[in-house]
Design a protein around this nucleic acid. Structure first.
Lengths: 234, 234
DNA sequence: GCGCGATTTCTTGTCGACAAATAAAATGCA
DNA sequence: TGCATTTTATTTGTCGACAAGAAATCGCGC
């Protein structure tokens, strides 16, 4: 019998329910705590969070809108699968978004954007030094999200965020394969990109972002190519 | 007293309610029948569609996810405003998506894609000949959507669709300014793009798509620059 | 023992109702 | 009369319940 999530026997405020379950469910999906393909039972979640099915439902609809859960009519929703067959479409998209958002950041960033980006870069380097792969993945997402924000194009920012989140699941599979020796080179590449943004050098940003993305893509592809899990997951 | 939408006193099937109200509401927003900024009353919609508030609510959540309605906590949802100040971000985004999806279409299209695209192009030319601006806008959307589909990258396709829909509202304002003499040149440009896709000429696709997008952007920008409505809407 | 249909169970989709939160109206006071 | 405060009214957010659809179970005939 699942307890109603320790702290919250009562709801704190009126609109907080959906937000809580949305964010937590989201995190659990992206952290692979809820494995792709696993079914999602509404009543189960309702008792777990100690609330009615209505707010659960709304959270699921939102997650479905972002492609994180799939819903079939009259059947249980499930955590959406990672499409290994068409993984290249993901790589194409995130490579382009890396390039575009970095270019725009070079054009439109403001001083406070650079402060945020540099602070994240410090955290990123610390995570690499500490060999903390999980933190590294999470901060990498936040770093590129901050760069996208600095570009100030909401359409590109939205797509980039979606790709970064989807990428969190993929990188999770990737980085958990080598628990030691996190690549120091990403830190240097980030450093170069940030410098190019600060210098407002658009072309250099484009080249660096493309090289950065290509490098990640190459490594992840190599990993999936030699890993059996890929074929199993098909 | 609003009648429950003529035909449907009873629901046809179980899951059809949300879909119906979602699509209709969506169309009304994109056709500017529901002007930007107008509030959306849930109970009003509920009686209008002859159903409970629950499915209405779900449709609104979905529309909010696509950015077509904005919701404030404990306050009425409203049709999202068109952000004239940052219109250039929209133009940047749709220009890039035109280029990318057309390139990808050249690479990955299949014969049946070309059939669909050519059929839409015929409809488009017919709409131009008939001086039907509304149909022209709608078919233009479907045509570029079909091109994006042929490119087979769901991330780009999703963003392109969102931009095309948002663009439907903007083009609506634009085209209703001149009711006669619809530009024949767009037909020719489309024709050239389709030929380049069929020839699988990626570079040509890129150039043509960019020129096509730039041309539309230029015209619309000129329109908004000289139109007072822009400043009013700020 | 096994295939196939009926029945039961289980989960979702929808409903009507109630309470919280906000907006609007009315009241009191200077 | 003008402003602050209380009261009312409207609208959302959440709830529990019920019915429809689909999956699982059971029963029956072969």
């Amino acid at each position: 019998m699942a307890e109603p999530e320790h702290e919250a026997l009562q709801e704190r405020k009126r609109g907080s329910g959906v937000k809580r379950v949305y964010e937590l469910l989201r995190d659990e999906i992206l952290d692979l705590k809820l494995p792709p393909g696993s079914p999602i039972d509404e009543v189960h979640l309702a008792e777990r969070f100690g609330m009615s099915r209505t707010p659960i439902r709304e959270a699921l609809v939102r997650l479905a809108g972002e492609g994180l859960v799939e819903t079939l009519p009259n059947r249980s929703a499930m955590v959406s699968n990672i499409d290994f067959v068409n993984l290249h479409t993901f790589f194409d998209a995130i490579t382009l978004m890396y390039r575009v958002t970095t270019r725009l950041a070079a054009q439109y960033h403001r001083p406070e954007d650079l402060d945020r980006i540099r602070a994240l870069q410090v955290s990123y380097a610390a995570a690499v030094d500490a060999q903390d792969a999980l933190a590294m993945v999470a901060i990498n997402r936040d770093l590129h999200a901050a760069i996208a924000e600095a570009g100030r194009n909401p359409y590109f920012t939205t797509l980039t965020l979606r790709l970064l989140d989807e990428g969190r699941r993929i990188l999770r599979l990737y980085y958990q394969s080598f628990d030691d020796r996190l690549p120091r080179e990403y830190v240097d590449e980030h450093e170069a990109i940030i410098a190019a943004i600060a210098a407002r050098d658009v072309d250099l940003c484009d080249r660096l972002a493309r090289a950065h993305a290509d490098q990640i893509v190459r490594q992840v592809q190599q990993f999936f190519a030699r890993d059996q899990r890929m074929n199993v997951a098909l």
